[in-house]
Design a protein around this nucleic acid. Sequence first.
DNA 1: GTACTGATTTTCT
DNA 2: GAAAATCAGTACC
Length: 198
Amino acid sequence: MLLSPAFYKRDTVTVAQELLGCLLVHREGAKTTSGWIVEDEAYLRGDPAAHSFRGETKRNSVLFGPTGRAYIYRIYGLHTCVNIVTGTEGDGEAVLIRALEPAQGIELMQERRGTQDLVSLCNGPGKLASALGITMDLNGASLHSSSLQVWSPDSLPDHRPEGTSGEIVQTTRVGITKAADLPLRFYLNDSRFVSRRR
DNA sequence: GTACTGATTTTCT
DNA sequence: GAAAATCAGTACC
């Protein structure tokens, strides 16, 4: 089932940990693509690495709006990254989705990504956005009333994510220079679909 | 396997 | 003008 608005209105680190194992779904008419979240990162208030750190701008305004919405941005001029606004509204906190285990619509994802290899389909923030067809027009979309949704871990009885231990590894975030030592990245240790280990 | 590079938009100095 | 929450391709070990 769909995660409730209340799910996102909690401590961002808790939400980041609990999002692991949930299903990120993009519905486009009859086509659906989705994947289990296996890796994510928390960006907090007062965190120099967060886009919200220097206050509200045109690009990051969604971060300062209601929780449970998608904050989408373009990075390095060409890749798209997907975040979920969490915590207390106005704090500018979010969870960056970094990797998925492909679940539904795998053929379409392979076509979009130009590869057959399941592991490299969604093992990075830009890759998963491309695979699910997530574009900038979804910036600000509510996860409760748009084509982009997150479902609880028991949502697909006929398809389960790999691994059984559910062991979560907590380590440093990827690709940042500020606050690079904070352990705010989380991933499922059982998963082969994580973008990088340690 | 690791190391380096170019692509290219948006923001802020 | 530089830097940025990245990726794919190339070179080399």
